[in-house]
């Protein structure tokens, strides 16, 4: 089951099977083959952003959230990082196992509704299917969303010198989930920070406008996966200073204990921005004024060297920031 972690193996599987035959993207400005957070379709002089995500998460309830909150936040954020911070409508498709406890289902529905209120996102269509016992492990939720972008911010438009900003501390979501799933007790309050950040990104775009060149949602493959992908697609290098990346002590500690690199841990409710140098300060100020952006930090910049790679300045030397792999295979002897 190494194909679900979102790294190279997933890219290979998807490009070899699921996207083959869908190369014709019609008149989409950003399509399936771009592997971005969502698609962009021209409608008149507007740009319609569409995205869909199917959520399976083990466990479905975790500290700081549940699959319902995750399903709404994930899709809202995918729209928002494409530039569509105002959600025109969401659809929700729920598949549950026949014996799934009603009370849990209600909790999930409630947190979906609550996340929608937070994101100011109306659910405009829904569908529910029940499958036989054992035909599915509990519950799966698909959400799709549409929005309109004035200015599209794909993950492939970084230019050298663009400042790289993260909007929040990283790693909480992935670590909280892992601890819950594996029954590991860290003696620390590790909570997922899963949340819709379209309001935060709306504030960013209001100040930064066209100077915001790229945005991305560092979900399954963590900060390292997202930055490497941005560097590859934008054909730039990215330089990051280790000590500037915001990470909480609890995440660092838990990562140390498990031997996990916070840069490789999944996030929800965090965004990475590429901003032209002149707009970096105003954008940072706007982020820090917002309750969801008080930990925002400029962590580095795009460079015209080391194309496709992320160079991490560790203070004692420079090394490449590694992407998470399908298997955790150490490289050191």
């Amino acid at each position: 089951l190494t194909h679900g972690t979102g790294g190279q193996a997933t890219r290979d599987l998807v490009s070899e099977t699921l996207t083959a035959g869908f190369e014709d993207a019609g008149d989409a400005l950003v399509g399936l083959a771009d592997f971005d957070d969502g698609a962009v379709l021209p409608v008149g002089d507007k740009k319609l952003v569409v995205t869909t995500d199917t959520h399976v998460v083990q466990p479905p309830f975790f500290p700081g959230g549940d699959i319902g909150r995750l399903a709404v936040s994930g899709t809202v954020n995918d729209l928002a990082v494409m530039g569509a911070t105002e959600v025109r409508g969401l659809t929700s498709g729920v598949v549950v196992e026949a014996n799934y406890p009603r009370e849990k289902l209600e909790r999930i529905a409630d947190s979906m509704a609550e996340a929608c209120r937070e994101a100011d996102a109306p659910v405009v269509s829904g569908d529910t299917k029940v499958m036989g016992n054992g035909e599915l492990d509990g519950i799966t939720i698909n959400t799709a969303g549409v929005g309109v972008a004035e200015h599209v911010t794909p993950d492939s438009d970084l230019s050298p010198q663009d400042v790289i900003i993260v909007t929040d501390t990283i790693g909480e979501h992935g670590i909280a989930l892992l601890a819950e799933r594996e029954g590991i007790d860290f003696e620390a309050d590790l909570e997922s920070d899963v949340q819709p950040v379209n309001d935060l990104l709306a504030a960013v775009l209001e100040v930064g406008g066209e100077a915001v060149t790229a945005m991305k949602d560092p979900t399954r493959t963590g900060l390292a996966g997202a930055l490497n992908e941005m560097a590859r697609k934008s054909e730039v290098g990215i330089e990051v200073t280790d000590e500037r990346v915001p990470v909480t002590g609890d995440v660092t500690g838990a990562g140390e204990l498990l031997g996990l690199d916070p840069y490789q841990i999944a996030n929800e409710g965090v965004a990475i921005l590429g901003v032209e140098p002149t707009a970096a300060e105003p954008v940072l100020a706007a982020l820090r004024d917002h309750p969801k952006g008080e930990n925002a930090a400029a962590i580095g910049k795009a460079i015209d060297d080391h194309h496709g790679r992320v160079v991490l300045d560790t203070g004692i030397g420079n090394r490449y920031m590694r992407e998470p792999s399908k298997e955790a295979v150490p490289r050191i002897c």
Partner: peptide
């Protein structure tokens, strides 16, 4: 390697569940 017995238990748990605990046949 760890500071407390509770942390030691986490490492043992890791070995049991295989959480970021790859298998090896390394003589080193």
């Amino acid at each position: 390697a760890v500071e407390t017995a509770a942390e030691a238990a986490v490492v043992r748990r890791q070995a049991e569940t295989g959480t970021n605990a790859p298998a090896t046949t390394s003589a080193g």
